[in-house]
């Protein structure tokens, strides 16, 4: 339509200007949402450093924080997969306990001792896949299914050790629980627990952002009916995410077992699911599904660890720690909502 060329030229140029402004606004928005809770984490760190008269930013203390954050980071990574699909996994604490019990029990057998690590992982994976199958194939609500397995798997964990604490002071691979990876001899080393947690985050990021499966996970969480019509095997995606959550809970169990040389089916991992869910929510992942990132989860897990560590450093009593932690969580999420207002869905 050459005759229309002149008439169209003017509106076209205004659209370009509008589009450029829109692009700038989008970039700004993406930057803000990518940073997420990072500013909160930094403010907390600096605040505790000042309040504790310079005891927070020391090599030793940071090592402790990283180590304390490690297991929760791993659980929260699995939880991120689940919550991204709009689900929830309440059973990770119990699965962690059962996996640690299974691993420790096997580690005491002389010939099979070395296999305790894969055994713990497989135990977690197994429970996770059962959760996923119940949710995906029988179409049961995730909250109900995992609430059930929270209780049932806790019972199995106690059963595995005949309701006692299982010890193994000579457990193989004990270094992952207490050793450190030396980066600069004598100056810089990172606890193996933290190395594992970082690897888990990295692998999760690769899966979520660089694979077909990752897009499918976001799609199922964003709009399950549309995903089904688009030819995505929703059931397979669901089994996968609960399987991952179980597998990471199993890994968390192995990390705990190696650290403590012991496990107790009743006490280990009690209410760990709450910290994991908190980390994911602090990280900006939407409870409805479809929106969120694994880096946010890492920041969320670090906020929880810094908060615990910092409050102890400045000598706040145990009771007040609970109150303050709870308020910080609510405040942080309120801030997040306020910040993201006007973006996202229309």
């Amino acid at each position: 339509m050459p005759s229309n060329g002149a008439a169209e030229a003017k509106p076209a140029s205004t659209t370009t200007n509008g589009a450029a402004a829109e692009t700038r606004r989008q970039r700004m928005r993406m930057l803000i949402s990518a940073l997420g809770m990072l500013p909160v984490l930094l403010i907390l760190c600096i605040g505790f450093h000042v309040l504790s008269e310079g005891r927070f930013f020391t090599g030793q203390n940071l090592g402790i924080v990283l180590q304390q954050a490690a297991v929760n980071t791993v659980l929260a990574a699995g939880m991120t997969f689940v919550i991204l699909t709009g689900g929830i996994d309440l059973s990770v604490g119990s699965i962690l306990a059962a996996s640690a019990m299974a691993g420790l029990t096997l580690s005491k057998l002389p010939e099979l001792g070395m296999l305790w690590l894969p055994a713990a992982l497989l135990t977690g994976l197994g429970f996770g896949v059962v959760n996923g199958a119940l949710i995906a194939l029988l179409r049961l609500p995730p909250f109900i299914v995992t609430l059930g397995s929270l209780t049932a798997v806790r019972g199995l964990a106690r059963l595995l050790g005949a309701d006692t604490t299982v010890f193994n002071p000579s457990i193989p691979y004990a270094f992952i629980g207490n050793g450190s990876l030396t980066l600069v001899p004598g100056a810089l080393s990172i606890p193996w627990l933290s190395v594992i947690a970082l690897l888990v985050i990295l692998v999760s990021w690769l899966v979520l952002r660089r694979t077909v499966l990752g897009v499918h996970i976001y799609a199922v969480g964003g709009n399950e009916s549309a995903a089904r019509l688009a030819g995505i095997k929703v059931w397979a995606v669901l089994i996968f995410v609960y399987g991952v959550s179980g597998l990471f809970a199993g890994l968390g169990g192995a990390m705990q077992a190696a650290r403590l040389y012991a496990a107790n089916g009743l006490q280990l991992g009690q209410s760990y699911e709450l910290d994991a869910i908190t980390a994911v929510i602090l990280g900006g992942t939407s409870f409805v599904g479809g929106i969120g990132s694994i880096w946010g989860t890492l920041v969320g897990a670090l906020i929880i660890a810094v908060l615990s560590n910092g409050l102890i450093l400045i000598g706040v009593s145990d009771i007040w720690q609970y109150v303050i932690k709870g308020l910080v969580i609510i405040g942080a999420v309120a801030l997040d909502r306020y910040r993201l207002q006007g973006s996202a869905r229309t």
């Binding site: 897009v215 976001y218 799609a219 964003g222 709009n223 995903a227 479809g290 996202a344 869905r345």
Partner: peptide
């Protein structure tokens, strides 16, 4: 409802 993923 059935086609797009609005957040993606």
């Amino acid at each position: 409802a059935l086609g797009l993923f609005l957040d993606m």
